[in-house]
């Protein structure tokens, strides 16, 4: 049982603000890279399979299976292949992000009204051009929502990545666990957890802006 000592926590923050900021930065970086990779892969897969029932259900089902696997299991299973460090965390986070992104890409592309696609074809656009210049921009807000869900997911999972030597705030949480019983245990774990929550909320807010500024001008409400 550790008593809660608020001035102690503030002093802890003051003393370790550099460490905390570094870890926050690392956390953001690993999530951002994973999301970027997952967006490229997920949207690519979505563009390939959106119109084929078999491909579609295959892609979405396999991504759903990955998401079902417990994160510690997936991250740990990659150690024999990739060793400890950033790589297993990065790959794990990318894999977990795929489901929301692929699913939303497929849903978004399919939701575009056939009448619009037909008029595009009528104006002389090739099928590929219809896909990239009409459907993709119209599906974009839905796709970004998928990335946003993936972001919330991966910010939390990244904390477990610290166990396989990954970067970020998880290190602080595990530091709390390993110093269990000492005065700073609570400070470490609490700081790590709080920072992850705040990060998740800020990133969620950022996505409102990202959606607005990456959506084609004509589609903005």
């Amino acid at each position: 049982m550790t008593g809660f000592d608020f001035p102690g926590l503030l002093a802890f923050w003051g003393k370790r603000s550099d460490d905390i900021l570094t870890l926050v930065g690392e956390h953001l970086l690993v999530v951002a890279i994973a999301l970027l990779l997952a967006t490229v892969i997920g949207v690519g897969v979505g563009l390939l399979v959106w119109n084929s029932p078999v491909g579609r259900s295959l892609a979405v089902t396999s991504a759903a299976v990955i998401l079902t696997i417990p994160s510690l299991a997936l991250l740990a299973a990659m150690i024999p292949l990739f060793g400890l460090g950033w790589v297993p965390t990065l790959i794990g986070l990318t894999l977990y992000s795929l489901l929301p992104i692929i699913r939303n890409t497929v849903v978004g592309l399919r939701e575009v009204s056939p009448a619009i696609m037909e008029s595009a074809t009528g104006m002389g656009l090739a099928p590929g051009a219809v896909l990239l210049r009409i459907q993709l921009p119209m599906a974009w807000p839905v796709i970004v929502t998928g990335v946003r869900v993936a972001a919330q997911l991966t910010i939390g999972i990244a904390a477990i990545g610290a166990y396989v030597g990954g970067p970020g705030l998880g290190q602080m949480i595990f530091q709390g666990l390993s110093s269990l019983g000492s005065k700073n245990a609570l400070n470490y774990a609490l700081t790590g957890t709080l920072c992850v929550i705040i990060l998740a909320l800020i990133v969620d807010g950022l996505f409102t802006l990202i959606t607005r500024y990456t959506t084609s001008k004509g589609l903005r409400a």
Binding site: A159, I160, V196, I197
Partner: peptide, 10 residues
């Protein structure tokens, strides 16, 4: 938004 690992360790 709370990470499970943080919550359980806390």
């Amino acid at each position: 938004a709370t990470p499970a690992i943080g919550f359980i360790i806390l």
